[in-house]
Computed example of a mutant assay.
Amino acid sequence: MAKPSGTRRGRARLRTIALIGIDGSGKTTQAHRLADALTAAGRPARYRRNASGRRWLGRLAHRLGRPDAQRLVGRDGMLAVESVLRWLAIAIALLSCLLTGRTAVMDRYSACQYASIRAHGGHRWERLARAGYRFFPTPQVTFLLAVDPQEAYRRIELRGTDHETMTWLTAADTAYRALPEYPTFVLVDASRSAEEVTEQIQAHLATWLPPAAHPSRPSETPAPPSDARPPSDATLSVPTAGEWAVRAVAGPLVAQARP
């Protein structure tokens, strides 16, 4: 079992960072920004998108006259395809970053598959998925981008490249909060502007990166001493879908330690 740790391990290199959350939470935008910021700070990083292929399956279903992927291959078939494709994407991403020595900035990770399975009601598949994904290292930091499903729905409709229902987004939001790993996630208020979300993420990583390498400018974020602990008010709680209003709560910054 991975044990959460709130302290930076000296100058240990960040190997894997994951950004997870429901569709429309801004994962892709923030993962790209983080990879660029780390690289510019002297910590070479690479963006990796670990998609499950659900969007591709949905487009294929439409071409074949079916309303969605589930109607094309069935729920179990869709979950099986998702799990396999995401497993392959993560495996390739980890291998590539291992060979190049770059930090892997993961746009989605195994927790996304577990949440998808739960949101689809295919709980028996979760045990199989966890058995297959257990070979992957736990990211040193996993950011959960928390956003109101209604706001996520608005963003998805605005970008116009795909479509999600409010029912699905609400179920996915609930699924993320119900995962056993949820207490170890670093919660980020993704309902704010993209710039503010970027600042939140970089402020969290300042406790892991050496002072000369963290992505924030020195004038904005003082470099923490080598034995510094994360700020006590850095974590956010996510209310239920009916109460959605992200708020700051006291608690240590939680970063996942590698198993």
Rank of each mutant, 00 (worst) to 15 (best):
P225A: 13
A119V: 03
L158H: 12
A206C: 14
Q150M: 10
Y109G: 01
T207S: 13
G6M: 09
E181P: 00
R258D: 15
E199M: 07
Y47D: 04
T174C: 07
A89E: 09
M166S: 09
T142G: 03
A171M: 01
L72N: 01
A146W: 00
R192N: 08
W168C: 06
A212V: 07
R59F: 01
R127I: 06
V81N: 00
L88V: 12
G251Y: 05
L205C: 05
L144G: 00
T103H: 02
P252I: 02
D227H: 13
D162W: 03
A172R: 09
N50Y: 00
G42I: 01
G42P: 11
P180V: 09
S5W: 03
E151I: 15
T207W: 12
E243A: 13
D233T: 13
A115Y: 00
T240Y: 05
L85T: 14
S232L: 12
Y114R: 13
A223Q: 09
T138Q: 11
E195R: 13
E82A: 14
Q256Y: 03
V105A: 02
G121C: 08
A146S: 15
A234S: 13
V81L: 15
A35P: 11
T235S: 11
L205A: 06
M78Y: 05
A2S: 14
H214D: 03
R258I: 12
A255F: 10
A152K: 03
P224M: 06
I201N: 05
S83D: 11
D107V: 00
A228L: 06
R192E: 12
L236Y: 15
P137D: 09
P218C: 08
D36G: 03
Y153P: 04
R71C: 09
M166D: 08
W168I: 06
A178Q: 12
S83Q: 02
V197H: 09
T142P: 02
I156A: 07
G251E: 01
F185D: 08
V188A: 05
E199G: 04
R63D: 05
L64F: 12
W244L: 09
F143Y: 07
Y133H: 11
R124Y: 10
